[in-house]
């Protein structure tokens, strides 16, 4: 556990503060998909996996699930690729992360292509008349911070620069 604690809670040279999934020794993802549901709700006023900036890759049989969210690269390849940078893809000076201004996005998908990760951490919102890029913005305007973290009932996700949470509640065994 000490090794795990050393891996988190640090400032990375490559990535800004981003959403991380902790190893199962800390907390196993329960698979509830609350993170996806609240993400789409707070950003788009609807519930849809296609609108969620965070993606849960479900282990249907294994029941071991993987969370994918934007790594918030410090060199912002998505921002660099945007033909309307600073209008469509913008930089939050305080957080250092790239975010999308959907009103200006032309749906060219160059940011998606530029994302170095698989699955791509930028997706297209096909719910609009014209597709718009969507990516995790760390809920930059929410006073409580990332909604996915706030509503994760097992606290299996957190912010990379925050220390690993500790089990402050404990529990007893179930009845049967």
């Amino acid at each position: 556990m000490e090794k795990i604690q050393e891996e988190y809670g640090k400032i990375s040279e490559k990535y800004c503060n981003h959403i991380v999934q902790y190893p199962p020794e800390v907390s196993l993802c329960a698979g509830c998909t609350s993170c996806e549901a609240v993400c789409a709700m707070v950003h788009d006023g609807a519930v849809s996996p296609s609108l969620s900036r965070i993606q849960l890759e479900r282990g249907t049989v294994s029941m071991i699930h993987t969370i994918h969210a934007c790594m918030q690269c410090r060199d912002h390849p998505c921002y660099s690729a945007c033909p309307k940078k600073d209008k469509a893809m913008c930089i939050d000076e305080k957080l250092g992360i790239a975010y999308v201004n959907q009103e200006e996005c032309v749906g060219c998908r160059l940011c998606v292509k530029a994302c170095p990760f698989e699955p791509k951490r930028i997706r297209m919102n096909l719910d609009k008349p014209r597709p718009k890029a969507i990516k995790c913005d760390m809920c930059r305007t929410r006073p409580n911070g990332p909604a996915c973290v706030e509503y994760c009932q097992v606290r299996c996700i957190g912010k990379s620069e925050d220390p690993v949470p500790v089990d402050d509640r404990g529990r007893t065994q179930g009845l049967f």
């Binding site: 020794e25 907390s27 609240v38 009932q153 097992v154 299996c156 402050d168």
Partner: peptide, 22 residues
């Protein structure tokens, strides 16, 4: 009513919001 949905997420049966280690 999304604010209400979010409120219900926190009030329905007082979710434990605790770690789930193996």
């Amino acid at each position: 009513d999304i604010p209400k949905v979010l409120e219900l997420r926190k009030t329905m049966n007082n979710p434990p919001m605790r770690l789930n280690p193996i």
